[in-house]
């Protein structure tokens, strides 16, 4: 319960930090919306000049992009600071302050990590999804929609784990801004439907490194029924990934020497 209080405290702090420079805050919110619209514009260009991606109509592809923007926005809003905090504090050698608190470091970091930028992205994502829903005539009162929500939830768990893994690496290797670059470039694999890749890669992105769950499988579940077996497998692989990230984090904490670097 205290963690919830910490969360709201963090929200107020972040907001006042950002609003210290009002012009920048407003411009930033506005620009982030435009930034996230660029990928739907790219989709529009793609579909007006070429037949597009096989198996994906324009509206379906927009739904894909909207889901992706929402998932990335959510990750950005609630999980990113966890990573950048860890990297920053570990390098300064002051990560110890999280170890002294009466909470588990990971729970505290998760509760206190918030970034306002993510909210404008989430907002844009929801608008785009809503537009695609209207165009495709989908309803939110259906079994497929529940599956969609469930898979989006799994996607969020996956991205949470990915951030924890990167943060754990920073505990182990200390100097690690480069890790953040690698993480953000691995995420690029999720930007287009998994069906464009080689079959071996699709297998890899589904079962071993389940990044295809970011938008591909949720939208597939919404548009055409995905077999329950696949959903079971996805649940399993994401849970495994989550378990792995937690173990790695604990291992990193054990390794941590508070020397900085």
């Amino acid at each position: 319960m205290k963690l919830v209080r910490i969360f709201f405290k963090a929200v107020t702090m972040e907001l006042s930090r950002r609003m210290a420079y009002k012009a920048d805050f407003i411009i930033r919110c506005f620009i982030l919306v435009i930034n996230s619209i660029i990928s739907p514009i790219f989709a529009l260009i793609l579909y007006t000049t070429t037949p597009g991606i096989p198996g994906w109509k324009f509206e379906e592809f927009i739904l894909f992009q909207g889901t992706l923007i929402f998932v990335f926005g959510f990750t950005h809003a609630f999980f990113w600071q966890l990573l950048s905090f860890t990297i920053y504090e570990v390098r300064k050698g002051s990560f110890d302050r999280f170890l002294l608190l009466p909470y588990k470091p990971l729970s505290y970091l998760t509760a206190s990590s918030i970034e306002t930028d993510g909210f404008s992205e989430m907002f844009t994502g929801i608008i785009i999804i809503w537009w695609a829903f209207k165009k495709l005539g989908l309803s939110i009162f259906s079994a497929n929609f529940i599956l969609y929500i469930y898979l989006v939830f799994l996607a969020l768990v996956f991205h949470y784990s990915l951030n924890i893994i990167t943060a754990s690496f920073s505990l182990i290797f200390i100097r690690s801004w480069a890790l953040m670059d690698i993480l953000s470039s691995l995420v690029i694999f999720a930007k287009y439907p998994a069906s464009i890749y080689h079959i071996g890669m699709v297998f890899f992105f589904t079962f071993i490194f389940p990044i295809a769950i970011s938008a591909h499988y949720p939208v597939q579940a919404l548009l055409s029924a995905v077999s329950y077996k696949l959903i079971l497998f996805l649940t399993l692989s994401v849970s495994l990934f989550f378990y792995l990230s937690i173990s790695l984090w604990n291992f990193g904490l054990k390794k941590y020497k508070s020397a900085g670097g």
Binding site: D24, I31, L32
Partner: peptide, 11 residues
């Protein structure tokens, strides 16, 4: 004029 320009710089 604008002091902080993190927003513009980002995009």
């Amino acid at each position: 004029w604008l002091k902080r320009i993190s927003g513009i710089s980002r995009s």
